[in-house]
Write a protein that binds this DNA or RNA. Structure first.
Lengths: 212, 212
DNA sequence: GTAAGCTTTTACCAAGCGGTTAAATTATCG
DNA sequence: CGATAATTTAACCGCTTGGTAAAAGCTTAC
């Protein structure tokens, strides 16, 4: 008996691997719907179909679970921006960035909402990541866009606000899903709204950024 | 003693008027930052500088406070859309709608975040309002936009997604303020970012919607 | 002024919270 | 198999939570 917690022995067992994944999956459900303070360990434990103490055997605290989730999401969430290529064709790079972000909103809405919840509540747990890695990545890509803009390949515009507008329009379909559904009604209860959105956004950004 | 609570006597006293306003103001601070479940009555009471039981004398429950706030916000929040005029010039109507929404994001960020929090968490307390009054208003304005679109006054586009994109791009500056600040850095710590955003969004939407 | 009603405070409660302890159970490996 | 380590459970703890009871203090209309 007297277990100094699995983590001590650097080796992770098969069960650890599985259970931690199970917990993170459950926690994503719960945190993305209720935010950090609004979620309870009991809720997560129930969603993961295990007892609270058992869950706390794998993650010391509620914060530890949230922390790991956020770190993971932040990485995958920025992937589309990372592949933004300076040597590519501006129009198609922007077009495919929009498409990719919209696909993520469709396929990973919980991740989007987890992130949105965090930012909305002042990002107390990820301020550093925002001011560090995120800002650096955006600065880098903003430079790329500015170059295109100055070379006359796209319209002159503020690259930061261009990025913000792509983020907001696409993530809207994940974060405000309930509202979007309510407004559109039964008509687009399937994934049709994503196709319509893709068409609209492509048109908006392509025509809005075309050199004139 | 034995107070059947002020509300019973339909008349509202001066003190009731003042204190209820004070509480709602404090609650807006707290709810907009922490969401419903993440906020406590004690927090609100402290922000309103009164004791918890005293606060509960004016509002029976935490939900009652939240309810009233949401109702209020929903009304004022949709005001800019309401004034959207079918007989006006399409370009300037859309332009001024964007400007107004952006001003609201700048001047009433708490209201925006309160609303965002609610939607993000599945809008359990306002589903009816969304499917009723909100949907009706949007349907009506979407019709206006569609008419303009068909008359060749603006580009052909899905009016619903146009409205969504205006909502999301403008509210982004309230709801994701922390992220916007983190990315822009010290450079635009004042209100400069709103002016830049206004310039960018006007260009994006005006050029994006121009008939070609 | 005073009586009635309105407002505030003090003291309290049951339920829910994040987290711990220690013992019981199960998996792993020689 | 048997021992050792990993996992799960039951019982519990102190604190916070939303909300109540009742009495004390204050306003207001007559």
């Amino acid at each position: 008996m007297a277990i100094p917690r699995a983590a001590k022995t650097q080796r992770r067992t098969r069960i650890q691997e599985e259970k931690e994944e199970l917990i993170l999956e459950a926690a994503l459900d719960v945190f993305s719907q209720n935010g950090f303070r609004g979620s309870t360990i009991d809720q997560i434990a129930e969603a993961a179909r295990m007892s609270k103490p058992n869950l706390l055997y794998y993650f010391r605290t509620k914060e530890a679970i949230h922390r790991q989730l956020i770190d993971r999401v932040l990485t995958t969430w920025l992937e589309p921006l990372r592949v933004f290529d300076a040597t590519g064709d501006p129009e198609s790079e922007i077009r495919s960035y929009i498409r990719r972000k919209l696909e993520m909103a469709r396929d990973f809405p919980r991740e989007s909402r987890l992130f949105a919840n965090e930012i909305l509540q002042g990002a107390p747990r990820i301020e550093e990541e925002l001011k560090g890695p995120l800002k650096e990545l955006v600065d880098e890509k903003a430079d790329v866009i500015r170059t295109w803009s100055r070379a006359g390949k796209i319209a002159r515009c503020d690259p930061y606000h261009l990025i913000f507008s792509i983020w907001s329009t696409t993530q809207h379909y994940a974060d405000f899903d309930v509202q979007v559904r309510a407004v559109l009604g039964q008509a687009h209860s399937g994934d049709g709204r994503f196709e319509d959105a893709a068409r609209f956004l492509e048109q908006l950004f392509m025509d809005g950024l075309r050199v004139r």
